[in-house]
Design a protein around this nucleic acid. Structure first.
Length: 678
DNA sequence: GTTAGGG
DNA sequence: CCCTAAC
């Protein structure tokens, strides 16, 4: 498609224009490392990709921040609702970003160029209070799209814009990203690329870096962005957003300004926006100075003004229609009538709907137990609200696992439930009783901790200490990297949890991030009681702990995993050496008689595992061993050697008991049997 | 009821 | 660990 080509070229050019490469040079291809590691505000894709923040995003985030600080959540005209990330007053903008991330993340694994734009615009859309149901309406062919994000760029020549037109189906491959697929998508963000320097970016990320109050005084009479020079555009930009920009791309500037003005109540209510012209249409009053969504200084922002000044007041259809007619060729999606164009236009900025998100989160929960976003409950209001049942409390990297704590209404008790990304393959805890059960289990092992836990009715929080000094961005990057290298689910979830749910670890948490301590205030509020962990097992030799969990109906009794202890393994080996592999019932009966929880199948399985281990692990003998120790029991090499020996031995002399070697054993067997039976 | 093997 | 086919 023509647009795509253009886009590629454009982006590439811009790339070269500025020195900015990738957010983390460590992932960059060697030749592209022009900068040392630069921490940027990045977004972490669901699949682990990093996407640098763009100026647009920054503004949005900033505005969110502002909203956040004021504790006011955007609320548009009745009937329209906007998401507002609850932050419990302590979550950082990072958390919000991530939350937004979650909200706006399509499930697709593949990153297509539209995604970034999609997210961006989604955020904008949120700010503009677009109805969640809108997409559905559109899907139904309903022209009901009163408050879509309007882009008034008349020429639609902005690569960014074009990009938006590329249908997802195209799944454009991005030439630039071969070496670093996870980061490359960021390069497509023209806005970022247009930023002059890292310095500017960094500055731009500071939410308070610019506090200039927007000045609309220069927006007198009619404005035609097309006629403005870059310098003038810069002026206008500054007037519009209250900050300066060094972006030199006219199209981008025009577009930003257009959007800004469009979104501005001051303009939208007083100007007629047509193409890139802003013609005054009424008096100058309106809500000047209430440039809420983009103002940088919360103190001068009337938050509540923001919602009322949105696109809704704009003649969306008119603008879109005009635009569409002009750019028909570009948008040759088949439709030629306005209706279709509008749909197309609307689709262009459609974001995942609430329904989609719900589905997404449901799917998520299925495979990871935790619903980061439980929007269903708030569906009536569109998006999350501060009163949401689900509160994202904290989300940090945890040795490759993302651990999120959320407040959920478990059994109506407002329990803090951990939702660990990619963790817990099994079904989530069914109900509150399950939680209590675990508390009791815990009590067996650690009454003190249990009390704590019980008192605070909370669940475990798994957080690995984060290297101190690491910026949040770096943390994000780290998280992304970790996530990206997710090991195939190996069923070690519990280990992860266990490893980091001790009080000491929480302590580490606070110590680990001194400068960010504030952000974890929620943690402290929740208390160390969070450390409750599912003590599925203790040292296996004691068989007192709960062994089986007879579930209600169905009878899907699931046996708690019981780690094999060394002594058990040794017994197993001994048993096999005596009775031979395969005589599991015998071994079970004679050697594991006291281990009621070990079934013959268990023995068999364990033996199988031992065999595997003995053959794979023994040769290297070093590297693997040390690494294997991380998780379960190491299984001493001698034992493994013996296992292998037995295996080889019995391989040669199959269960026939006829060979001489086995004869020796046979005698033993007989002997044991006798003693056993006697 | 056990065993073997896949999930 | 669970499930199941085969024994």
């Amino acid at each position: 498609m023509e647009t795509e080509v253009g886009v590629e070229g454009n982006d590439e050019a811009k790339l070269k224009e500025c020195g900015i490469r990738k957010s983390s040079s460590s992932l960059s291809s060697p030749k592209q490392i022009s900068d040392p590691v630069v921490y940027k505000l990045v977004r972490v894709e669901g699949d682990g990709r990093l996407v640098p923040a763009t100026e647009d995003e920054l503004m949005e985030v900033e505005s969110l921040l502002i909203d956040d600080r004021c504790g006011i959540h955007i609320d548009a005209d009745p009937g329209q609702t906007v998401g507002c990330i609850s932050n419990e007053g302590s979550s950082s903008w990072m958390a919000q970003l991530e939350s937004l991330e979650g909200l706006s993340q399509p499930k697709s694994k593949k990153v297509d160029p539209d995604k970034l734009n999609g997210r961006l615009e989604y955020i904008e859309e949120m700010l503009q209070k677009v109805k969640e149901e809108e997409r559905l309406h559109i899907a139904c062919g309903s022209p009901h799209c009163s408050s879509a994000c309007v882009i008034v760029d008349s020429q639609c020549s902005d690569p960014h814009d074009k990009l938006l037109h590329i249908d997802e189906k195209l799944q454009c491959e991005i030439p630039l990203q071969e070496p670093v697929p996870s980061l490359a998508p960021s390069l497509r963000e023209s806005n970022l690329n247009q930023s002059g320097s890292v310095g500017e970016l960094v500055a731009g990320w500071s939410p308070l870096s610019v506090t200039t109050k927007p000045d609309f005084s220069i927006l007198k009479g009619e404005i035609c962005l097309d006629n403005l020079s870059i310098k003038e555009l810069h002026e206008t930009f500054k007037a519009t957003f209250g900050r300066e920009t060094t972006v030199k791309d006219k199209q981008w500037l025009k577009r930003r300004i257009s959007m800004g003005l469009t979104n501005s109540c001051a303009v939208s209510t007083n100007f007629i926006i047509k193409d890139n012209k802003f013609a005054k249409k009424g008096n100058e009053e309106g809500c000047n100075g209430m440039y809420g969504s983009f103002a940088k200084d919360p103190s001068i922002v009337n938050q509540k003004g923001l919602p009322t000044c949105l696109v809704g007041q704009l003649d969306y259809h008119k603008v879109v229609s005009e635009r569409r007619l002009e750019n028909h060729n570009i948008d040759d999606y088949s439709g030629s009538d306005d209706h279709k164009n509008e749909q197309r236009a609307a689709k262009r900025v459609r974001k995942p709907t609430k329904r989609y998100i719900e589905e997404f989160s449901e799917v998520e929960s299925k495979e990871s137990s935790g619903r980061l976003l439980n929007l269903a409950k708030n569906s009536g209001h569109g998006l999350m609200s501060p009163k949401s049942h689900v509160r994202l409390v904290r989300n940090v990297s945890s040795g490759g696992r993302t651990v999120v704590t959320r407040l959920d209404s478990l059994g109506g008790s407002g329990i803090q439930v951990p939702c660990v990304s990619r963790v817990r393959r099994s079904r989530p805890r069914k109900n509150f009783m399950a939680l209590l059960q675990s508390v009791f289990n815990l009590a067996v092992g650690d009454s003190f901790q249990a009390k704590q836990v019980y008192g605070s009715v909370s669940s475990m929080v798994s957080i690995n200490s984060i290297p101190s000094g690491m910026g949040m961005a770096a943390t994000l990057v780290k998280k992304a990297l970790d996530d990206h290298s997710f090991p195939p689910d190996d069923g070690n979830e519990d280990r992860v949890l266990k490893a980091s749910s001790t009080p000491e670890h929480v302590h580490h948490l606070f110590v680990g991030m001194p400068e960010k301590g504030k952000q974890f205030s929620v943690m402290s509020a929740v208390g160390l009681g969070n450390n409750m962990e599912m003590k599925m097992n203790s040292s296996g030799d004691s068989d007192d702990n709960v062994v089986t969990v007879p579930t209600s109906k169905g009878g899907v009794r699931r046996k708690h995993h019981r780690a094999w202890t060394l002594s058990e393994v040794m017994k197993l080996v001994e048993g096999v050496s005596r009775y031979g592999a395969g005589r599991w019932s015998e071994i079970k009966r004679l050697v594991f008689a006291s281990y009621s929880y070990r079934t013959s199948v268990d023995l068999k399985d364990k033996w199988r595992n031992l065999l595997k281990a003995s053959f794979t692990q023994t040769p290297p003998d070093t590297g693997m061993n040390s690494r294997k120790n991380t998780g379960a029991m190491p299984i001493p090499t001698p034992i493994l050697l013996k296992v292998r020996e037995l295996a080889e031995m019995q391989a040669q002399a199959p269960p026939n008991l006829s060979s001489t070697k086995v004869a020796g054993s046979t005698r033993k067997i007989v002997h044991e049997k006798q003693t056993g039976f006697l």
